[in-house]
Amino acid sequence: MAPKKQEKAKLPVPLPEGMILKDTERKTWQLGKMIGSGGFGLIYLEYQENGPLFSELKFYQRAAKQDCIKWLAFKQLDFLGIPRFWGSGLAEHNGKSYRFMVMERLGVDLQKIFVQRGRFQRETVLQLGVRMLDVLEYIHENEYVHGDIKAANLLLGYRNPHQVYLADYGLSYRYCPNGNHKQYQENPRKGHNGTVEFTSLDAHKGVAPSRRGDLEILGYCMLQWLCGKLPWEQNLRDPVAVQTAKTNLLDELPNSVMKWNPSGNSCCEIAQFLAYANGLAYDEKPKYEILKKILLDGLESSGILHKGLLEFSTAGHIRSSEASSKKQKVNAQKPVTEQINRVQNKLKDERIAGSHVIQRQAQKEEKLDGLINSERTQ
């Protein structure tokens, strides 16, 4: 069943500094000073009856084991942004039972930086997108989806601020237990789950999270980071209005995205990214290499390495946008058309057989043809 809506959990009373905790493997940990609190706990603490930390713990136990190291070698990656899990257990204090997890310490979250800066440079957005794709591909391969990707859940490394981690798996969902993908089923009673400004159209309809949903959410995040805001941010108290605005954005790609950025920077990579994600079937495995190539091509055109340092200054953003805005506007249309053509060909070649899938494919091809024709008339 789909995860329940987020509810404000009762935060536990902080445990005393210096208290000794013993995890399930009999390793001991000493509590230091509390460094913060989240929506469900005091970084590492919650009352035993609360659920989100239990969900996060199950994710780490099933999907974030040492197999991660083998996967890094197989993918020829030197880093994967999943926080390191050290242990977990239960603790008793003053008649209350607490669940705890011991995790790698991380640095500042991107939401704080985003609020300070107002937006991120185009190159930084593309770098973040590539790195998050690596994380999502890994957790998807391990039968999980994240379901709540946003700047507040992306944290920089504590010792290396140029590494970025996707944290908070309290809403993670096992979409494909034992290789059996969950069936598509709308449930209005469970609609609008997740963080409303970023959540997927499936989640708005009460459908259980899936891989395409994670990619759609990441696309919205990148759009906000680049443009400073999303088209539906003024309607966040009305989830139905947000859902309608997202539907319109996806139906009118690429123009809906291309015209949204007020900074003069090109959004063509994000338009291509969202077009691909929106073209996926609910249970279809994404071709992550296609999505990475979209973002990497954008970085290559700017002469930036995706493994390079993350730059969050606004000065560089302003200079780059002023210097290249005219060139980007002239050159943006051709890459979008070429990429949508490639996406269309991939969808034709790789669609799973079946009458319902064939019908969906026809709708996608018609939609993509419409995007290309609309673009050519401009």
Rank of each mutant, 00 (worst) to 15 (best):
L106K: 05
L128F: 01
Q116G: 07
V108I: 15
R119H: 08
L90K: 14
E92I: 09
Q127K: 15
Y98H: 15
E92K: 13
G107S: 13
K112D: 12
V102W: 05
L90G: 01
V125R: 06
R117F: 06
R122W: 02
V108H: 10
V102E: 03
V125D: 10
R105G: 05
E123D: 14
L110H: 04
Q127N: 03
V108T: 15
V102M: 12
Y98P: 13
G118A: 07
T124K: 00
E123P: 03
F100P: 00
S97D: 11
L128Y: 00
V130P: 01
R117G: 10
V108Q: 14
G87M: 10
G87V: 07
Q121I: 04
R131Q: 05
M101T: 14
R117E: 14
G95E: 10
I113C: 03
Y98D: 10
M103P: 01
L110V: 09
N94A: 14
Q111W: 06
Q127E: 01
G129P: 07
V102I: 15
Y98L: 12
G107W: 11
V130D: 01
Q127Y: 04
G107T: 12
K96L: 05
G107C: 13
H93E: 11
S88V: 06
K112G: 02
V130S: 00
S97V: 13
G129M: 09
F114A: 09
G129F: 04
R122F: 07
H93D: 12
V125P: 01
I113L: 14
L128D: 04
T124Y: 01
Q116T: 15
F114D: 05
L90W: 11
L106M: 13
Q111R: 11
H93T: 03
G129C: 12
R119G: 00
L128I: 15
T124H: 03
G89V: 06
R99C: 00
S88D: 12
D109C: 10
G87D: 09
R122C: 00
I113D: 09
G118I: 11
R105H: 12
Q127C: 02
E104P: 07
Q111V: 00
G95P: 09
Q121C: 06
H93W: 15
L110C: 13
N94W: 03
E123I: 01
L106R: 02
G87R: 11
E104N: 08
M101E: 08
I113K: 12
Q111C: 04
Q111K: 12
D109Y: 11
Q121K: 10
Q121Y: 00
D109V: 06
G129W: 02
F100L: 04
A91I: 05
L90Q: 15
E104L: 08
Q127T: 02
A91E: 08
M103R: 09
R99T: 02
R99D: 00
K112Q: 14
L90P: 02
R117Q: 15
V108N: 08
F120Q: 05
G89D: 05
F114P: 09
T124E: 08
F114V: 04
Q111F: 04
R131G: 03
A91S: 11
R105S: 10
G129I: 09
Q121M: 13
R131T: 04
V108F: 03
L106C: 11
G129R: 06
Y98S: 05
L126K: 00
N94P: 00
E92L: 03
L126Q: 09
G95S: 07
S88H: 15
T124N: 06
I113W: 01
V115T: 13
L90T: 10
V130G: 02
E92C: 06
S97A: 13
H93K: 11
L106Y: 02
F120L: 15
I113E: 10
L110Q: 07
